[in-house]
């Protein structure tokens, strides 16, 4: 057995889950959803939670609901199941094939990726690009956070130890919106070195980049360049790469960023 010992809790309702979490949070209690990051971290003993609150048995958390132009993705929706109507669904499909490999996508969750806040997370990038919101619960109550107020930096969020993400909400894209995604990784399924999302047309332009900085972000300078007529994708890509906070001498990563942004834009154009 590789993980250090812990106590295991398998609540059946959300109320029970947040009650247990409130009780065990002071003793390094953690929420277990897909487990595709937490369990390997425990195997390596980088994480040694005293308690795991397994939310996989909580009824209703595996649902995707679409209402009023918003897709709501529950806390236990697996990567493989993430979907939405229209261009948003197409963008999600483009992105999710880059998340590790099939067996990881069968277990890992969308909301778990947000809570984990890896700089190379595709779903964090999507959430930032689309100004997603997250529903957070604890025994103390509920709150709704803009994703920009959730993600602090690499592997850091503003979640309190007794809080859990219940769902993420993303506004759907209008039918005529055009979407593009590009990711560069050294090996198939590996963490991205750089990735970019572009939305053009209705509801655009939106341009966001991930992996190179501690957290994904939109690039307003490049978005402004995309509003020019005629639009110059190459110039916008240079603007995007120039805006990144990278060591000045790191020409390779900046060139990679420019290429990734340009390919995402060309895919959307």
């Amino acid at each position: 057995m590789k993980p250090a010992a812990f106590e295991y809790h398998a609540p059946r309702t959300l109320e029970e889950a947040v009650a247990v979490l409130a009780r065990v949070a002071p003793e390094e209690g953690r929420v277990l959803a897909g487990g595709q990051t937490l369990v390997p971290a425990m195997a390596l003993r980088l994480a040694r939670p005293g308690h795991l609150v397994d939310i996989n048995g909580v009824a209703g958390l595996d649902r995707i609901d679409v209402a009023d132009g918003v897709v709501r993705i529950g806390a236990c929706v697996r990567h493989a199941a993430v979907d939405a109507p229209g261009p948003m669904g197409r963008l999600m499909a483009l992105m999710k094939r880059h998340i590790a490999h099939g067996p990881i996508r069968a277990r890992g969750t969308f909301c778990g990726s947000l809570a984990n806040a890896d700089a190379a997370s595709e779903w964090c990038l999507l959430a930032v690009a689309m100004d997603a919101r997250v529903e957070v619960r604890s025994a103390r109550g509920a709150r709704i956070l803009a994703v920009d107020d959730l993600l602090l930096g690499s592997m850091m969020t503003t979640l309190e130890p007794d809080e859990m993400i219940v769902a993420a909400r993303i506004r759907l894209l209008p039918e005529r919106a055009r979407v593009g995604f590009h990711e560069f990784a050294r090996r198939a399924g590996d963490f991205a070195q750089v990735m970019a999302v572009a939305v053009l047309g209705d509801d655009g332009p939106r341009l966001a980049i991930g992996s190179l900085e501690p957290r994904p972000r939109r690039l307003p300078e490049a978005e402004a360049a995309l509003a020019n007529d005629p639009v110059d994708l190459a110039a916008a890509s240079r603007t995007a790469a120039a805006a990144l906070l990278l060591p000045e001498e790191d020409a390779y990563l900046r060139a990679l960023a420019e290429t990734s942004v340009r390919r995402a834009l060309e895919a959307a154009a």
């Binding site: 295991y8 487990g35 795991l52």
Partner: peptide
């Protein structure tokens, strides 16, 4: 034993998953 090599892959309700990244109690 951290989800990378794929050797431990089994089918969970017909879906391929890593047996090293699931606690056995989760198979209940």
């Amino acid at each position: 034993e951290h989800g990378v090599c794929g050797a431990c892959t089994v089918l969970l309700d017909g879906r391929a998953v890593r047996a090293c990244l699931m606690l056995a109690v989760q198979a209940e």
